[in-house]
Simulated assay, not measured.
Amino acid sequence: MTAEDVQHNGEPHANNVRQRLNWLRAGVLGANDGIVSVAAIVVGVAAASTSTGAIFTAGMAGLVGGAVSMALGEYVSVSSQRDTEMALIEKERYELETMPEEELAELTAMYRSRGLSEATAHQVAVELTAHDALRAHLEVELGIDQNDLVNPWHAAISSAISFTVGAILPMLAILLPPPAVRIPVTFAAVLVALALTGTLAAQLGGARRLRAALRLIIGGAIALVATFIIGALLGTSGIV
């Protein structure tokens, strides 16, 4: 086994897999946000008014506003993460330039902690340092691939898309059926969708699927009931 084999059989590959799963799980949760947020808005408006135009306008406002908010939030969050990673890379580069012997000893110790003998760990550290010292330290010490840093634009666009996809369901569920059944249909469609996406998110994260699905179903139901009651009260009072 070469030094390269030792390096690539370690945590970086696992980190990459976890990162992809985290992105996918974030997309599922973003869709859940779109489902619940827009469903709550349109159900509240539908409880107060039977005007299809008013429901459509409120739903579209929620969809666009929510998608933009999600995108901005993800952009800021991921930008902060990327800035942190860049700072860590610069710090590691500086340490390698100013105290190479201490960094070699640190890399050796990290491979020793993974079960290699002192001689083997030292040899691996020497070979990897000669090949690409910065890459070796970033991957083994910090789990960072400097060629695969998080992209805030990708995160923002993905969040906006996932929220929009989720929001389309309650929009269709509230607008397509006749006024007499549009609210029950929306309730049913939203709760089924939350059950499915909750199960998928739990499966991706290795959590209990039933518990995750029930958590989303209960939360979504509470949101829908609350906005329905508010909309009905406002509609009855003549405010809307």
Rank of each mutant, 00 (worst) to 15 (best):
P179D: 10
T164V: 13
R112N: 04
I218V: 14
M110W: 08
V36I: 09
A202R: 01
L191I: 07
R135I: 04
A156S: 11
L21N: 07
L194M: 01
E90Y: 15
T50Q: 15
I35G: 07
G205K: 06
S113T: 15
T52D: 10
L142D: 07
G34K: 02
E92S: 12
L216A: 15
V150Y: 12
H154E: 05
I168Y: 15
G30T: 00
E106Q: 15
A155Q: 00
N22S: 11
G53A: 00
I161D: 01
E95N: 13
V192Y: 14
Q203P: 05
T108L: 09
A125G: 14
A3P: 08
A212D: 08
I161R: 08
A193K: 02
A195R: 03
A167K: 02
R209M: 09
T227M: 03
A3E: 07
A133R: 06
M171G: 00
L210I: 11
H131K: 15
G166Q: 09
A212L: 07
E11G: 02
S162C: 05
L176Q: 13
A31Q: 03
E4I: 10
H13C: 07
R82V: 06
V78N: 02
T227W: 00
D145N: 15
D145A: 05
W153A: 12
M171F: 07
I230H: 12
T186W: 00
I183V: 11
